[in-house]
């Protein structure tokens, strides 16, 4: 138990000084996608639900947060929270309509809904259509603190991300999380134990949508604009890639997955389409050779090494006994 805590403390310490060494906007982008990927892992990794339209929660909340900041004097953190609540309600609506379906049917229904939501945003006037929503102001935090400078805003994003990751950790390691994992492993059995598995999954869907919304709202305030891209299906696909790459159903997998993909995109941006091609190749390699993802494979390796060491410790005395 000590080691993960130590790792978390070191990670936070690194993040605190990171903007002095790296471009803060890239770091903030990574953090937005870390929250987004964590929300997605909550669904696919811990409930076994493949939502193929998670971008609607991300992009939708970006518009709502942006709109609130542009048209009202609402403070920054409330606007992001409202974005999350909007996505949570959208998730409740879509979840009620689709949660009974399983597997590929569920994926297709969520994809259809997300396309529907996408076209609503395309046609609406408040979103700016194809042009996107521009010049979103960063209203004062708590109505008091000016955060328009990126050097300062970085710490706001860091704080929100840490809270979200903690909430994600709490959900996974809660009494509910235990039931949720049981539903993922064997739904009929959970039902035979007196639970309503559909309600368990619906709650996961709403929680995940809310967290995806927070991520989207945060991204709108980082870039100070929101575009249709945020709500489009390639974003839904990208978050799947991040989660798979990091390690499905591992706690820290999506954090690494999001970091790796955003950095790759960043470094390969100059090569145009090569960025996409390399993503495709990476996904293929991961699915074929490293099915457990980055964190999953790392865990398996450490467990293997520890197992061998334990084995060596056990067999040695036995051998010496035999020798006697």
């Amino acid at each position: 138990m000590r080691l993960p805590l130590l790792a978390a403390v070191v990670a936070v310490a690194i993040l605190l000084v990171a903007p002095f060494y790296f471009y803060s906007v890239t770091l903030m982008t990574i953090m937005c996608f870390v929250v987004f990927a964590c929300s997605f892992n909550l669904l696919l990794g811990y409930s076994g639900l493949l939502c193929f339209g998670h971008a609607m929660f991300f992009g939708g909340a970006a518009y709502i947060t942006g709109h609130l900041l542009k048209t009202t004097p609402m403070s920054l953190e409330l606007a992001i929270l409202c974005g999350g609540i909007f996505s949570g309600l959208l998730g409740l609506l879509i979840g009620v309509l689709s949660i009974r379906r399983q597997g590929i049917q569920f994926a297709m229904i969520t994809l259809a809904f997300s396309q529907f939501v996408y076209f609503i945003f395309l046609q609406s006037s408040f979103t700016g259509g194809e042009d996107g929503m521009q010049a979103i102001p960063r209203n004062a935090l708590f109505g008091l603190f000016d955060v328009s400078d990126n050097a300062v805003f970085y710490y706001v994003v860091l704080a929100v991300t840490l809270v979200c990751v903690f909430v994600y950790y709490r959900i996974v390691h809660s009494p509910y999380g235990e039931v949720l994992k049981a539903v993922r492993d064997n739904q009929p059995r959970v039902e035979s134990l007196g639970f309503n598995p559909e309600r368990v999954k619906l709650l996961a869907f709403v929680l995940s949508a809310t967290m995806a919304g927070i991520a989207g709202g945060m991204k709108a305030t980082v870039y100070q604009f929101a575009t249709l891209t945020d709500a489009s299906w390639p974003i839904s696909a990208e978050v799947i890639l991040m989660t798979l790459l990091g390690g499905l159903g591992t706690l820290t997998g999506p954090i690494f997955g999001a970091g790796i993909i955003i950095m790759l995109n960043d470094y390969l941006a100059g090569f145009g389409e090569w960025a996409l091609i390399s993503q495709g190749v990476i996904l293929l390699v991961v699915i074929v050779f490293f099915r457990r993802g980055f964190v999953g494979e790392f865990d398996a390796l450490t467990r293997y090494l520890r197992g061998r060491r334990a084995e060596a410790a056990v067999t040695k005395p036995e051998n010496s006994v035999q020798a006697l």
Binding site: I171, H173, S174, P175, Y176, V179, A182, G194, F195, L207
Partner: peptide
């Protein structure tokens, strides 16, 4: 424990620790 939670009533408490 999952089965015991069924009557214990903690099955939906996502905000509490284990």
């Amino acid at each position: 424990r999952v089965a015991l939670q069924s009557s214990f009533g903690t099955g939906y408490q996502f905000w509490r620790s284990l």
